[in-house]
Each structure stands twice: as structure tokens, then as C-alpha cells.
Design a protein around this nucleic acid. Sequence first.
DNA 1: CAAAAAATTGCGGGCCACGCAAGTTTTTCG
DNA 2: CGAAAAACTTGCGTGGCCCGCAATTTTTTG
Lengths: 220, 220
Amino acid sequence: MPPEEPPTLTLRERKKREARRALAQAALRLTLDRGLENVRVEDIATEVGVSPRTFNNYFSSKEQAVCSVVIDRHEGMREALLARPEGEPLWESVKQAVLEQYSREGEPDRAYVARTRELMGQLMLRGEFLNAHAAVERVLAETIAKRVGGVDHLLCRLMASSVESAVRVAFVNWFTEGEPLLPTLERLLDELAAGMPTLTGGTAPKPESNATTPLGESLC
Amino acid sequence: MPPEEPPTLTLRERKKREARRALAQAALRLTLDRGLENVRVEDIATEVGVSPRTFNNYFSSKEQAVCSVVIDRHEGMREALLARPEGEPLWESVKQAVLEQYSREGEPDRAYVARTRELMGQLMLRGEFLNAHAAVERVLAETIAKRVGGVDHLLCRLMASSVESAVRVAFVNWFTEGEPLLPTLERLLDELAAGMPTLTGGTAPKPESNATTPLGESLC
DNA sequence: CAAAAAATTGCGGGCCACGCAAGTTTTTCG
DNA sequence: CGAAAAACTTGCGTGGCCCGCAATTTTTTG
């Protein structure tokens, strides 16, 4: 008998994950090469060596397969957030967790920038990409709730949702303007945490003492 | 010759708008009655008295037709925002504009709550609803940019995006918890404007002088 | 009123999602 | 171990959707 006894991972389970992963990757690769509309389900299935029908056992659409990469991101995000030290301010924790997650993936490949841009456009159009982000958002909200003691779910969802907004905006900015992702992301999260003083600078709704936003003028 | 000379609205144009509107409404009504999966394109077309092929001249999918109601909201939002007085603080303007728009539509029909919930579930699943929100978001960002002088587009997009986040969260809260929409919305927008002090209250990232957030304790 | 411009419609094709009923692989248990 | 059970894969067939194309009808224009 084999000495390896995987704790809770039956062989079946491993195979399933493997297949799913392979399908998602194939879908992404083919889409980056040819554009989404030139990839048939049959192509993806063939690439992995599996029947088209089987593809639909794992994903109910091409778009879903491509976006599953985005969805899987939630795991890393949750772990990163829960791993932050106890006493740290919430916004700082969230910021670091998000940055950590996105720096782990690295700035996307230079050669694929054009393709990725195209892909993003298509996925934005079809709603599937946004849908995927919504999934990440739910997990993030849960995690935030756990982090702060889980009282006001509404606010947790708001925070998660607006953080995802920042991510999306930064992403779009990256692939339309070519500016690096992480600095933009950091800046946007800081703005969020402060109620966007740079925009509202001259006419802050809750200035109290708006000594923190005099330099915002240069941009707005 | 007819004495009426519509300024820039040719007859053709009116018919098109009418048809589009009729199709969208039919799509929404049927979906609320039966659920999206039980509505075929053919049904919608028949309801309006038009060929199925024509439906696809106006909308490229059922989902798009249903969501066009959401998209049309952007018009009202833009006007409302641009109509706010000059000197008003930006967050206040945005808040009032959004509230105005959503109070104009009125709290949704009691009888349709259950149906609407179901519909939202389906539309959330298909990403089309989120897609529609993204469209509103783009217009909102533009409008905000115009409002503040249009310099930092990135921040404008962030603000628009997070405002839409608040709207979505309030909406979901409405149809899952049954709480009234407008008060929730107002509260969420206030929280956004202040960087969500209620959540981060005890551990604000940019306290400077955190004399503004002592009362947040009650919730968090 | 006639020619031009624009919309509607039917048809045909390609593709996609999924239910169903074999067939195959993995797991379980005596 | 070895057979029954459970889980996954696959082919087939169905219904549906989206869209290009070309013919027809409607509206506009001069």
C-alpha cells in the first residue's frame, strides 16, 4: 500500500480540483490568444483532453471559467486579512491584505498587456467579470465582519464593496493608462479611508479641522 | 403638411424609443411574473407585437432588456447632480442627487417584493445587473468630473464606483431585510464620506484628531 | 411623388447549456 | 480481495439564443 495517506483529500477530490484548474487555465490561455469570441467550449475541452459535455459539468459558461481565476483570489485575500496583527487599524489591515494579494500575482506580463486589455474589455462588457468581483466582495465582507467582531453587517458589506470598487478602478486604470497597479491601488484605498478629501478638498463635508487636506489642491 | 415640427425628434426616433421602452417593460413584467428562465425572447416580442428578430435589434439579450431600466436611471442621476447649487459640498450634492433619484421612483411595490427578490437573485447571478450598474457608474464619474472641474479622473471614478457600491448594498439590504431604502442609503453615503468611522472607530487610520469619531463606539 | 435611408422580418447557421441514460472509475464494506 | 454502491464522464438529443444576410416595408428627403 502507498505510505501517503492524504488527510482529507481523497483521490477523487484531487482529480476534480485538477480538472477544474486545468479547464480554467486553458480557457484563460486560449482567450488571451484569440479573444473570447474565437474560443469555443469544444476548444477548451479538447485542450484539456476532456469532452465538451464535461466542461459544462464544471462551468456553466466560458466566461465563468475564465473568471474563476478572479474568484479564486478570495482565498488568498481572506487569509491575508485574517493574518494581520490584532491591534492594527482596520483600514491599514485591509490595505495591506489587498496589496499583498495583488503583489503576489505580480504586475501582469508585458507581452500580454494588449491581450489582457482586450480581454478585460470583453469581460467587463459581459457581466461575468463584475459578477466574479461580487463573489470576492461577499467573502471580504464576511472576513471584515469577523475581524471587527461582526456587528454591523451592513457597514461591513459597504466597506468590502467599496474596497472592490477601488480594486476595479485601479485595474481599469492599469490596463487603459498603463500605470503600475500597486501604487494606484494604495492611493485609492487611502482616499477611501479618508472620505476622498482630495476631491472634496475645498468643500469638505466633515472638515472638522481640515488641516490634513491642504496639499490636495495640487490635484483638484 | 402637419403643423407640428418636433425640434430634434423625428418620428422615426420616437418610434424607436417607444419600441425599446415597450420591449424593456415587457421583459421586466414577464420576468417578475414567471422568473427569467421561463421567459423566452419570443414571448417578449409577441407581447409587444413584434418579431423575435427585431427584439435582438434592440437588445442583444434578455438580461440586457430587463436591466435597461436600471441603465436609464443614469439620465435622472446626471440631471439631478448637475442641478445642485454651485457652492454645495461635493458629498452633499452627490447624496442629495442619489436620494432624489431613488425617491422619485418610490419605495418598490409591496406585492412585488418576493418576485423582485427572486429576480435580483437571478440577475445578480447573471452578471448583467452589475453590468448595468457599471454603466451608471461611468456616467456618474463623468458628471462628478464635470462638477469638480474634471481634473483627477481616477478619483472621480473611485467616488462614482463607491457611491454605486452604497446603492447596491442598500438595495440588497432592502430586499433581503425589508428595511426602507432611503434612510439606509443616506446613512451609507454619510459613512462613505467620512471614511466609515463607525467601523474603524476605535482604531482610525488617520485620526489626526479623532475627536470626530467617539460616538461610533455604540455600533462597533 | 419618387428615390434614398432606415427598420422589420424570415431564414439559416453556429453555438451553447443542460437533461438523460449509458459507460467508466473510484470508494466503500463484508 | 471482490462485489455492490457512489461518483464522474461521455454521447446524444432538445430547446434556445444570437446574429449575418437579403428581401420587404416604412419613413424621410428633395
